[in-house]
Amino acid sequence: MFDLTGKTALVTGASGGIGGAVAEALHRAGATVTLSGTREAPLRELAERLGERAHVVTANLGDAESVLALPKAAAEAMGSVDILVNNAGITRDNLFMRMSDEEWAQVLDVNLTSVFKLSRAVLRGMMKARWGRIVNITSVVGATGNPGQGNYAAAKAGLVGMSKSLAHEVASRGITVNCVAPGFIATAMTDKLNDEQKGKILTQIPAGQMGSPEDIAAAVLYLASREAGYVTGATLHVNGGMAMI
């Protein structure tokens, strides 16, 4: 349905379930993709599966130099970065009263600060091209809060405000900035939950099941498309009705 032929996309956290599905969806729509993540092996595996138009650049987004190098390497590999999907994220859950400065800083660095820096770096090319798409993956907990995730929820809510501010600034240049906020998605992370925990979660989801990485990928694909050019500063909630906001 959406055609991204000739467009280039950088996807962070592409070694994870959601990031991998996002990269695959953009690639299937015709985009050239750069897969980024900390672990090279799964990135290579995905790139091989995708075949042509797939590049791999490993990067640790907790490391300032790595954050600086990534957009340059991606632009070198693909010629430009037309679409940036900031999907990479980490959790360092802890009760607020027990949370260390380090747990707070690590999550803010990777989940919020790196998104600011990567977006800033790709904007120059997008401004010149008069076309660009930035899609930030936030989370339902950025809107609702979640016990044990004060750092994560702060970073995710921060992304929303940052995206809206940037969306204001660059809308006149054909660049959109949006967020996709997943609810509970079946990934390696949620596989670790036991049946009781899963059952509890499901009672809170009107759709009665967890989402799939493909559900998130479809939302990202839409926001990255030409057809979504009039949508900016928005957050698309993909959560099975868990939070209707």
Partner: peptide, 9 residues
């Protein structure tokens, strides 16, 4: 202000 950034670029 964004025009001035672009001019500098």
């Amino acid at each position: 202000s964004l025009d001035t950034v672009e001019l500098v670029m």
